Simulated scan of single mutants.
Amino acid sequence: MAKKRAPRGTGTVYERPDRGDWTGQIAIDGHRRTVYGKDKTAARAAISALLKSDGQTDQKTTGLTVTKVIDEWFERDLAGRDRAPQTVELHRWAADRIKVSIGKRKAATLTVRHVDDMLDQLTADGLSRSSMLKLRGTLSQALQFAVKRGDLPRNVAKDATIPPSATRTAERTSLSPTEARTLLGVLRGERNGLMLALSLRLGLRPGEAAGLFWDDVGDDAVNVTRGVRMVKNRATLSDDLKTAAAKRTIALQPDLAVWFDDHRKAQRVERMAATSWVDDRLVFTSPTGNVLSPPNVRKQLAEVCRRAEVPVIKPNELRHSCASLLSDEGVPNELIADLLGHTTTRMVDETYRHRLRPVVSIPSTWATSG
């Protein structure tokens, strides 16, 4: 029996199993309107409400400005989500930029062109493509929250485009297996070389490696529980990591366990010779036992790369190299995501897909094979 069609002019509704709700769409005055509901009945009711108001939103919400929409999203939605402080700070940075550009505009009258014009202007001001993506993402999440609440009929940020002229972020460098082994050999004799090796071998973020305490290190595993982040230009320890999956336990290969023992002995010698030592909990420190400064770590790695005669890379590119090398060996994306502390495989899928081969086995061989 043929499925009964809805009368012409009443719009269409369809289920979105991936999101657990229903979408309703209808054209009013030549403009397609989209609404959402928890079920088919709710979506139909939302369409009916649009028809009764000639496509306008509820009178109580037509006065909402973009700034108000963003503020309510921060207070009612984002505040209740498990987001790392760094992620929240990025959203606040983006929100501030958006408010300056279009914050006073009524959200109900916001169009795709308005958002495009904002992105064009910010690109002309020198912001990069990655910054544009963050700005559009923040605005889109705020508007989508308003749509779900029935305050807006449509999320116009979804259809906005990033200007082609926006500067693209330079592609990250990934070391080859030979380059990685060469760099590891030089790091073995370097002060705090183990910290950089942990990013290359185990995929630790630079801040995660720098934030390790001796209590986090066992005979056969290391616990990642905190990190080092810059706060007002000062390196500071923080228990808040980047993602929900960032706190993890990673098995240590035997050679890394030996390296930890050697590093502990070397640090004891340093502490005995020093007139004062700031923090004896830290595995990796400055010569006075203080938290390592990320800029100094970058300088150290650059110098080591030059001496090893391999491409000069940044600390986070050691982690990128780790994931690329594991992908190249056929390690499943799910295991790489777990190792790196990602909540999903999306980053691995998008960043390392060009290196994937048919799945073989999990053991890594590049670090030891010739």
Rank of each mutant, 00 (worst) to 15 (best):
A160H: 04
L135N: 01
R129I: 02
L356P: 00
W259K: 00
A79S: 12
L183R: 01
G24P: 09
R306S: 02
V217I: 15
T225K: 15
L50A: 03
N333C: 08
A274R: 05
R353V: 12
M1D: 12
P17K: 15
A235K: 08
S238C: 14
T344I: 00
T365H: 10
E303Q: 13
L51N: 05
K314A: 12
S140V: 07
I28K: 05
F74C: 00
D125W: 12
Q86N: 13
T109R: 14
G126V: 11
R264G: 02
T275D: 10
W73V: 07
S286N: 08
S286V: 08
M272F: 12
A124W: 00
L340E: 03
E75D: 12
R92V: 03
A166G: 04
Q141L: 11
A308L: 07
A46H: 11
N223K: 13
V231D: 11
A6F: 08
R129G: 10
P85K: 14
Y36P: 05
D96R: 15
V312T: 15
A79P: 00
L326H: 01
L64D: 14
G11S: 05
V291R: 06
D349E: 13
V304K: 08
M195W: 10
L325H: 04
P363T: 04
D82C: 08
I70N: 02
M118Y: 04
P163F: 11
G185T: 04
Q141T: 09
R306I: 02
E15Y: 15
T62F: 09
K158E: 13
C322G: 00
L325E: 03
L282D: 02
E350L: 13
A146N: 05
T138D: 06
R154E: 03
T343G: 04
G137Y: 00
R191V: 08
H263N: 06
K265R: 09
L301T: 06
K99C: 08
D220P: 05
M230V: 14
D82H: 13
D215A: 15
I28V: 12
A170K: 14
R355G: 01
R201D: 03
Q144N: 15
T34G: 05
A27L: 15
G341A: 07
V359W: 01
T57H: 12
I70R: 01
T236L: 08
A42L: 13
T351D: 04
W277C: 02
A221S: 15
P363D: 04
G137C: 01
A43S: 10
K4A: 11
R5V: 09
D262F: 04
K242H: 05
D54L: 03
D215V: 10
L339V: 05
G80H: 05
R264H: 14
H263L: 06
